[in-house]
């Protein structure tokens, strides 16, 4: 798992948060973990295949998730229902898609799978075969984390 793979995710988050939410994002201290594990309530998992393989986990605190969708929809959201969860899944999907496009400009062609959303902090995702790097992303409405576990099959 190379640290170079991280920057596109930060840049894509910066872009997408500015356009969708008019919010600034700052990067917190990176850390390495053994497995992908949710730290907050609202989680999105996205698989990556191609020149890099692995998974991405986006973990949002509940209040932040609700605030994000409230801002986008222009109306108050009070529960993590199918609408809110799908919107979060889409945001993670857009960020991942943009990040993967940036990786492609360094000649790494990857595809992403549709987002899967789950609620709760129970368990870890066993699909991670490689260490993950967790990127805390600090915004005025809360901090969420993106865990990136990607490796090149060619080594």
């Amino acid at each position: 798992m190379k640290v170079e793979y991280i920057n596109p995710f930060y840049k894509a988050t910066l872009d997408v948060f500015r356009i969708m939410l008019n919010l600034d994002v700052q990067r917190g201290q990176l850390r390495a973990v053994e497995e992908l594990a949710p730290v907050s309530e609202a989680n999105v998992v996205i698989g990556v295949t191609g020149d890099l393989r692995g998974s991405l986990l986006y973990s949002f605190p509940k209040e932040m998730a609700l605030e994000m969708v409230t801002t986008m929809a222009g109306m108050p959201m009070s529960k993590l229902d199918a609408f809110v969860c799908s919107a979060l899944g889409e945001v993670a999907n857009i960020i991942s898609g943009n990040a993967v496009t940036m990786l492609a400009s360094s000649s790494l062609a990857c595809q992403i799978s549709p987002p899967q959303v789950f609620i709760g902090t129970q368990g870890s995702l066993s699909m991670a075969t490689e260490k993950a790097i967790v990127v805390p992303l600090i915004t005025p409405i809360g901090t969420f984390e993106v865990s990136v576990s990607l490796s090149s099959p060619q080594g």
Partner: peptide, 10 residues
């Protein structure tokens, strides 16, 4: 609901 979220974000 899922579709509405998709249309909104798109």
């Amino acid at each position: 609901q899922e579709f509405a979220a998709r249309v909104m974000t798109w």
